[in-house]
């Protein structure tokens, strides 16, 4: 459950570490990577299942339409097969995949811009300034979060979106792979996430709802 609704579950100490399941994912990826490199097909299939959502959001946040994003993500995975033996950690694997996907998205975007300069590919993505009532179950916390995300800069929105699909030890490398150094996350919170927290806190005060900081 991504949103524990019971305020009692939120720790009072800000130094409390991230729940174990995020680093468990990291450990699991490390063992799957070893299996895949040894030729285990099931290990590779599991890595694909685990990391495809991340790559999807990298491609989509670069403004690709769904069909093109799917092609680009599949291309990244196919190209990985030839490079897999040189990749030694889940962090390196994640960075490699993000870098290749982002580079290819940029290449496709560049080609398209020369063909159809008037078309704004970003316009096809849902706009965070719209309220998500139509898509998301009515949940005041989610609406709050969506409002707050919509107030972030484009750069921070992209970083948050991609980091949210990443295992924690890779946060810093994700920022690097995306070409976002300033505001990046890890090992400290970073400017983008600090701003999102501040926006949520303000919104919670104004709305007098079950806040995030309770």
């Amino acid at each position: 459950m991504p949103f524990p609704s019971h305020p009692a579950q939120v720790p009072t100490s800000h130094a409390r570490q991230v729940p174990a399941d995020r680093s468990d994912q990291h450990v699991r990826l490390a063992s799957l990577l070893a299996d895949a490199k040894a030729g285990d097909r099931a290990g590779l299939d599991e890595i694909v299942r685990e990391l495809t959502p991340l790559l999807w959001h990298v491609a989509r946040s670069e403004g690709l339409d769904e069909e093109t994003a799917a092609d680009v993500v599949q291309g990244s995975w196919l190209n990985l097969l030839g490079s897999l033996q040189g990749i030694h950690s889940p962090i390196a694997l994640t960075s490699w995949l993000i870098t290749v996907t982002k580079r290819e998205a940029w290449r496709v975007n560049g080609a398209r811009r020369t063909e159809r300069a008037d078309e704004d590919v970003l316009a096809r993505l849902p706009d965070p300034s719209d309220r998500p009532d139509e898509w998301v179950v009515a949940d005041e916390q989610r609406k709050q979060l969506w409002r707050a995300v919509g107030l972030l800069s484009d750069r921070c929105q992209r970083l948050m979106r991609v980091v949210a699909f990443t295992h924690r030890p890779s946060y810093q490398e994700v920022g690097v792979a995306l070409g976002i150094a300033r505001g990046s996350i890890g090992p400290t919170r970073g400017r983008c996430l600090a701003r999102l927290r501040a926006l949520l806190a303000m919104d919670a005060e104004g709305c007098d709802t079950d806040g995030w900081r309770r």
Binding site: P11, R60, R142, V149, T188, R189, L193, L200, R213
Partner: peptide, 25 residues
């Protein structure tokens, strides 16, 4: 706040961002 280590609230917020994007796209 930006210089502080990540805590559980950050993890919840990121999990929330993930579930939003899972639903939207």
């Amino acid at each position: 706040s930006a210089g502080e280590p990540l805590d559980e609230l950050d993890a919840r917020i990121l999990a929330g961002v993930r579930s939003l994007w899972d639903a939207l796209d």
